[in-house]
Design a protein around this nucleic acid. Sequence first.
DNA 1: ATTGTGGCCTGCCCGC
DNA 2: TGCGGGCAGGCCACAA
Length: 264
Amino acid sequence: MPELIEVEVYRGVADLAIGRTVAAVEAPDAWFLKGGITAADVAAAIEGAAVAATDRIGKLLLLDLGPDRPTLGLRFGMTGRLVLDGNTPIQRLEYSSGRDDPAWDRFALRFTDGGRLRMQDPRRLGGVQLDPDLGLLGPDAWTITLGELRAALGRSSAPLKARLLDQSRVAGLGNLLVDETLWRAGLDPARPAGSLDATELRRLHRTVRSTVQLLFDRGGSHTGDLQVERRWDGRCPKDGAPLQRRTVGGRTTYSCPVHQLAAA
DNA sequence: ATTGTGGCCTGCCCGC
DNA sequence: TGCGGGCAGGCCACAA
């Protein structure tokens, strides 16, 4: 599913729209428009504007439409794809479909040059927003600093995994990426977030950043070493132990009971 | 404030 | 062959 890695790839797609002018907005699905806006609102706000720049914070993709225009915020949920002029860098998403049914087009920008940037989302878990509140997002996981991570975890008693999934604390990590990271860092997802000592915190910090980079280089959040073992009889790729399957932070969680220790 | 839970969305896959 | 039920997780509303 789209975590920050996939959204960064989508950003690359959106970059190809820079300099192009929005001729029309297609918003056939009112549910997909968030924050109480209508299709007419969006059209009035951005038609005639050109895409000036793109940005990404966590899983949120931003289209800067120039001064005096609202910024367009695109969220992809877990099944959303971005397609430009019929091309998409990601054909098949984990837990989604590889088909391209026109009925799944939830939002699109039609450009004056005839091109079209569209969001395709079978399950309608994504959405579009004008001027999204960036203050609701924590620092981006890809570039988070040690101090920022320390602050994000705080003295919390919530499970470590839950804090890492909380987009207001750390932006961009999803279920697969968190499981892979904690597996690599040798930390139990259920540990209280505030229980890490300085050594563990440093290890987690390095591992978050390196895991995002590694999986990006490999081509997606689903390319982690733990991924293929996410099944009932999965085994730890490090030590061969049967993996533990639990719900932590409300999410299906796989971890190794041998090397992902509950405490230092 | 913090933490946990349940619901929403709907395609897909499994078992009958 | 069709059908029902469970499952996936990002996000949000709500409860304690």
